[in-house]
Amino acid sequence: MIKMLHEKGMRSEHAYTAAFMSIGLSVATWALSLNAEPGAGIARADRWGIFVGEWAPTFFGLGLALSHYEQQDGTLTASVHDLREQREKQAM
Rank of each mutant, 00 (worst) to 15 (best):
I2D: 08
I2L: 10
K3I: 03
M4V: 07
M4A: 13
M4W: 08
M4H: 05
L5Y: 03
L5K: 08
L5R: 02
H6D: 09
H6F: 14
H6G: 02
E7C: 03
K8G: 01
M10V: 07
M10H: 07
M10S: 08
R11P: 00
R11F: 10
S12C: 07
S12E: 10
E13N: 10
E13R: 03
H14F: 04
H14C: 00
H14E: 01
Y16M: 01
A19D: 04
F20T: 04
F20I: 10
M21T: 13
S22W: 00
L25R: 02
S26G: 03
S26F: 00
V27Y: 06
V27G: 07
A28S: 01
A28P: 04
W30K: 06
W30F: 09
A31G: 01
A31I: 06
L32F: 09
S33K: 02
S33W: 03
L34K: 03
L34G: 01
N35V: 12
E37H: 13
E37V: 06
E37A: 14
E37D: 14
P38A: 05
G39E: 10
G39K: 14
A40H: 07
I42V: 13
I42W: 14
A43S: 15
R44K: 14
R44N: 13
R44A: 15
A45R: 11
D46C: 14
W48P: 08
W48L: 08
W48F: 12
G49C: 03
G49W: 08
G49F: 05
G49V: 06
I50P: 10
I50G: 10
F51D: 11
F51S: 12
F51L: 15
V52F: 11
V52P: 09
G53H: 04
G53T: 06
W55D: 13
W55G: 08
A56F: 05
P57F: 00
T58G: 13
F59T: 02
F59G: 02
F60Y: 06
G61M: 08
G61E: 04
L62E: 00
L62W: 09
L62G: 02
L62M: 11
G63C: 09
L64T: 05
L64V: 12
A65P: 08
L66C: 08
S67Q: 11
S67F: 06
H68N: 14
Q72G: 14
Q72H: 04
Q72Y: 06
D73C: 09
D73N: 13
D73G: 04
G74L: 15
G74W: 15
T75Q: 09
T75C: 10
T75H: 02
L76M: 14
L76A: 11
L76W: 08
T77N: 15
T77A: 11
S79H: 07
H81K: 14
H81A: 14
H81T: 04
H81I: 13
D82A: 13
L83Y: 09
L83K: 14
L83F: 08
L83D: 09
R84M: 15
E85G: 15
Q86F: 10
Q86V: 11
R87K: 13
E88T: 05
E88Y: 11
Q90Y: 06
Q90K: 06
A91N: 11
A91Q: 05
A91D: 07
M92D: 10
M92C: 03
